[in-house]
């Protein structure tokens, strides 16, 4: 509640939160199929129709309603982004905690493995995973998840190491608290703040990467809709039907903006050191 109030009191937080909330509603409606038209239904008489009352955002080359496809696309992009960030944050937290807690050899092995993954530019690593598994929605989830796991591992390991050396952890050990209890109650709970910030910012990157993979034809496969795919389809038609470029482009941009604003606000609120130089 306190955090929600703080977000509401922060300008970026308010704007970012409102955008994210709006997108969540759109995504949910899109996933559940509550769209103005059937996103897959082709209407050859209404091909490349400019925006009207019936078709708010116009129609595409096959006469499909762009607004409905966009809603479904937002749903698809958000599903991939949330699943992949859930994957990365879970894997990263487990690995980071294990590295910090057990230290020594395990720490060395885990962190060098993460260094290896970080040695690849993000999109390249994602492409490598796609090359192995083949394109598709689940591939995108795994690919983006793997790409961002090392970042979460690093975010967790650093603070976990310093928390481990704190007196209250020693005290808990002395009182005979179990390892699981200390790891979850004392370490994990204290890591909620940096993790929340990282998850919010990672969602923005995940949306960006998902859109990029789909744009390249290696993410969501047609006829399913995704924002990246819609943009890719717009390339040869942008002169005659600019709405095919403008709406999905804006949709991607504003969604990423929302998560970036919210992430910045959360960082300001949860990490007081950042307040002075809020970029």
């Amino acid at each position: 509640m306190r955090i929600l109030r703080a977000i509401f009191g922060h300008t970026s937080g308010r704007i970012g939160g409102a955008i994210v909330l709006l997108y969540l509603v759109i995504a949910l409606l899109g996933v559940m199929g509550f769209t103005p038209h059937d996103p897959l239904m082709q209407n050859r008489l209404d091909r490349l129709h400019s925006p009207t009352i019936t078709y708010w955002m116009g129609t595409d080359l096959f006469g499909r309603d762009v607004a409905s496809r966009l809603m479904r696309g937002v749903g698809q992009s958000f599903t991939v982004a949330f699943l992949s960030v859930a994957f990365a944050s879970l894997a990263g937290t487990v690995l980071g905690l294990a590295a910090a807690w057990f230290g020594h050899r395990l720490d060395g092995i885990i962190m060098r493995l993460m260094d290896v993954l970080l040695a690849f530019p993000a999109i390249l690593l994602a492409l490598l995973v796609v090359a192995i598994v083949g394109p598709g929605t689940w591939t995108s989830v795994v690919a983006i998840g793997i790409v961002y796991t090392p970042i979460f591992t690093r975010v967790v390991r650093g603070p976990a190491l310093s928390l481990k050396a704190r007196d209250f952890v020693d005290a808990a050990r002395t009182f005979g608290s179990s390892r699981t209890y200390i790891l979850t109650r004392h370490l994990l709970l204290n890591l909620v703040a940096p993790l929340t910030v990282q998850i919010t910012l990672a969602l923005a990157w995940a949306l960006l990467t998902e859109a990029g993979l789909s744009f390249l034809g290696l993410g969501t496969q047609p006829p399913a809709s995704s924002l990246g795919l819609m943009l890719s389809d717009s390339r040869n038609l942008m002169e005659t039907a600019p709405w095919l470029l403008v709406f999905p482009g804006l949709a991607i941009m504003v969604s990423i903006l929302g998560f970036n604003l919210l992430g910045d606000a959360l960082r300001d609120i949860l990490d007081p050191r950042m307040r002075r130089s809020n970029p």
Binding site: A204, G212, L231, M238, L245, I252, I256
Partner: peptide, 19 residues
Amino acid sequence: FAMVGQSTPSFVVGLLIIY
């Protein structure tokens, strides 16, 4: 401007420039 710029994927910028 910086925040909007950072949130705009390069391929969206590229397509807009071509348009």
